[in-house]
Design a protein around this nucleic acid. Structure first.
Lengths: 139, 139
DNA sequence: TGTCTTTGGTCAGTCTCTCTGATTAAAGTA
DNA sequence: TACTTTAATCAGAGAGACTGACCAAAGACA
């Protein structure tokens, strides 16, 4: 079984479940919006940086931030350090979604640990974190 | 770091690289088309089954198969066992892409093994295969 | 200082993928 | 035979992603 598919299947499961949990709690965001939202730094992040880290064009990132802004999950404030730039910041409303997402993630991890064991779960994490070094173009 | 993102990042890397390799070899398929094509059984597969295993609606699967058919990568033949159904089969042309994809996958795995070591790579595979039991809705 | 290049972001247009809803036709069932 | 289910398609719409063109501020430098 190919390594891409092996990674894809559990990843899809996590994305689906976390999004479903967040939606069920009343936060109406899409997967694409969530992927951008997730990458907004507590101190605010420039659009260019968001685009780069989410691996989409700045037009796409801008489109998604527009929607998140309309829905009240982020706001754009001028960047004091650069007159051209604006910082995307998460609002209080969006911050309330974080514990919902984290709770579902914890639930998933617990189920997985139940199925494959604590030791293997730790090994999985370790291997994936190391792979991030060579597969995360943003890092 | 959340387990979803940890899975997502290397998965994206694999998908990008394999697709780029296949494209570079002259096979013009998209990621979505590839995801369907990958799931066609050597003996042929019904559209409904493809849709289910790729986790899309049958309309979407049908749309992608249409494109793959136009490009000459699959053909639809009547299903001898069911007058309503047709079997999607891969053509010789598509079969030629398989070794290209496999070669890139092997290259990726070798690089990863180089970075995290043989032992951790085996552990990663084992954990992911076990997780498939509980996260692959098709299995 | 004034020009040139780079960088952050937007506008316009298009394409691909995905969905929902409705429909057709063959199979299976009572 | 009539009813229900299943395999697939048609029609229409929305989301998300891209390329290309553009503007304005910042940085570099002669």
């Amino acid at each position: 079984m190919n390594i891409g598919l092996l990674l894809f299947i559990p990843n899809r499961d996590v994305e689906n479940r976390v999004l479903a949990a967040v939606n069920a709690a009343g936060f109406e965001v899409t997967q694409a919006q969530a992927r951008v939202l997730m990458r907004v730094d507590p101190d605010g992040t420039r659009l260019t940086v968001l685009a780069e880290s989410a691996q989409v064009t700045k037009q796409t990132a801008g489109f998604l931030v527009d929607q998140l802004e309309k829905a009240g999950y982020v706001e754009r404030v001028p960047d004091p350090a650069d007159g051209r730039a604006r910082l995307v910041k998460v609002t209080e409303k969006a911050k309330e979604a974080v514990p919902v997402a984290n709770a579902e993630l914890a639930r998933i991890e617990a189920e997985w640990e139940q199925h494959i064991g604590k030791r293997r779960m730790a090994q999985l994490r370790e291997a994936l974190e190391m792979l991030g070094d060579i597969t995360d173009p943003y890092r």
